[in-house]
């Protein structure tokens, strides 16, 4: 039991190295319309300096990136530009930050910085969970059967 808890904590928090990529400057043009970002999924590497050009194609939209306190707002015809350095690895959602209609709360895109370790940790934990389930029952053979 303790072994499994220990292992799961290990899987959760063990510092895993991110594959090292040479950071580069990126220019990403994101078009926002009701209620989507195009592209909706962006893949970059840790350490990249990312310049986002937010272009709104219908009404005023915003771009707010989880975990980075990076925000842009763009009117149609007025491209908003901002730069941040991708210091944190993982998957981060970005959301529209200017109310733009009914589906505004769900106007979401995702930015993947490096490898999504959490997903792999999750898969490893899943295998561990199954193993733990099997072991826990073998130890205590079916009492109620």
């Amino acid at each position: 039991m303790l072994l499994f808890i220990g292992m799961s904590l290990l899987i959760f928090f063990a510092p895993l190295p991110q594959p090292v990529q040479i950071p580069k400057d990126r220019l990403i043009r994101i078009e926002a319309s009701s209620f989507q970002f195009i592209p909706g999924e962006i893949q970059i590497n840790p350490g990249d300096r990312v310049t986002v050009e937010l272009v709104s194609t219908d009404v005023v939209h915003g771009f707010s990136l989880d975990g980075y306190s990076f925000e842009l707002k763009a009117d149609p015809g007025q491209t908003a530009t901002g730069t941040f350095t991708a210091g944190k690895a993982g998957v981060f959602r970005f959301r529209c930050s200017v109310a733009c209609g009914n589906l505004h709360p769900f106007m979401i895109g995702k930015l993947q910085v490096g490898v999504n370790l959490l997903l792999f940790r999750g898969i490893a934990l899943g295998l561990l969970a199954i193993a733990a389930a099997l072991v826990s029952l073998r130890k205590a053979p079916r009492r109620r059967m």
Partner: peptide, 21 residues
């Protein structure tokens, strides 16, 4: 121009604004 015209005429004046795509 930026607030009123660029959405159609384009930010660089090319006539390629987001509203006239």
């Amino acid at each position: 121009y930026a607030t009123n015209c660029a959405a159609c005429h384009g930010e660089s004046g090319k006539g390629d604004g987001v509203m006239v795509r």
